[in-house]
């Protein structure tokens, strides 16, 4: 157990249209780190809601702390745990909305999280997804879709934490895998994932694989810089939307870190 660690990296970048309009980035990311339990949380604020950037920030911070605290209970009973999370989150958003002087629906956003706990021989994980983001999972060096985007036929149809039927669309998955498989997770909002994953064929781009590998092999600071640079230089010029990516990766401590430059 002493040898296995978790590492996180996350970044949000404001999209071209929000830069032009001088409006804030409506995505938010938040990381939680502790010795054997770490995770990342991502939210994409609803474009039509005035304070959704605040909602996304509140939602990621609150959810990350909640899942860290309730990980064991949610892992054992994911359905009940996710329902309770949504109820408590809605209460929290209602009180925050009152403080902000807006309606709870003004804080609408999607929600994704991935948390992992390292144990003696295995890594237990808990992922949640509500809305149009995707979560990819890497295991034994192979990256595949774990939780796909949930939206209707049209681009402007998805579900938020404030939606009345959010509970029906909130998907949570749990699992465990051997430490040796070095599992990793990549969470991406709808502004970013179309560049990393082709839904029709289920194909994951090499870039997704590389980002996850970088978190494992580079120093935390360098992998964070690499991620921000990837969003800014590779995605933003080709997308008008805000873009966020969060990475959670297992490392066998002391065996993988390299100081080689990241390409």
């Amino acid at each position: 157990m002493k040898d296995t660690k978790l590492r996180v990296a996350a970044a949000s970048v404001r999209g071209q249209s929000h830069r032009t309009e001088n409006t804030p980035c409506q995505d938010a990311v938040f990381e939680e780190r502790s010795s054997y339990l770490s995770g990342v949380c991502v939210a994409d604020g609803a474009g039509s809601c005035v304070a959704s950037h605040i909602g996304a920030r509140i939602t990621t911070e609150w959810t990350a702390r909640y899942v860290r605290r309730e990980f064991a209970a949610m892992f054992e009973e994911p359905d009940a745990g996710s329902s309770k999370l949504l109820i408590d989150l809605k209460h929290h958003l209602t009180s925050e909305a009152a403080l902000c002087g807006c309606k709870p629906s003004d804080l609408s956003c999607t929600l994704m999280f991935a948390f992992a706990e390292t144990r003696r021989r295995e890594v237990r994980y808990l992922c949640g997804n509500l809305g149009d983001g995707v979560i990819l999972m890497q295991q034994n060096g192979i990256t595949e879709i774990l939780m796909d985007a949930d939206n209707g036929e049209f681009a402007n149809q998805t579900w938020f934490v404030t939606s009345s039927d959010a509970n029906t669309h909130f998907r949570v998955c749990t699992g465990s895998c051997p430490v040796e498989s070095l599992p990793g997770w990549l969470l991406a909002t709808d502004g970013a994932w179309p560049f990393l994953y082709r839904r029709s064929s289920g194909t994951v781009a090499r870039a997704a694989q590389s980002l996850l590998e970088d978190v494992r092999t580079a120093t935390p600071r360098r992998s964070q810089i690499a991620l921000s640079s990837f969003l800014e230089n590779m995605i933003i010029p080709r997308s008008s939307d805000d873009c966020s990516i969060a990475l959670l990766q297992t490392i066998a401590h002391g065996r993988h870190i390299s100081r080689r430059p990241i390409v």
């Binding site: 249209s17 474009g47 039509s48 809601c49 402007n156 939606s163």
Partner: peptide, 9 residues
């Protein structure tokens, strides 16, 4: 083209 989820078309 700017509309997002939650809207009733």
């Amino acid at each position: 083209s700017r509309s997002t989820a939650g809207g009733n078309e």
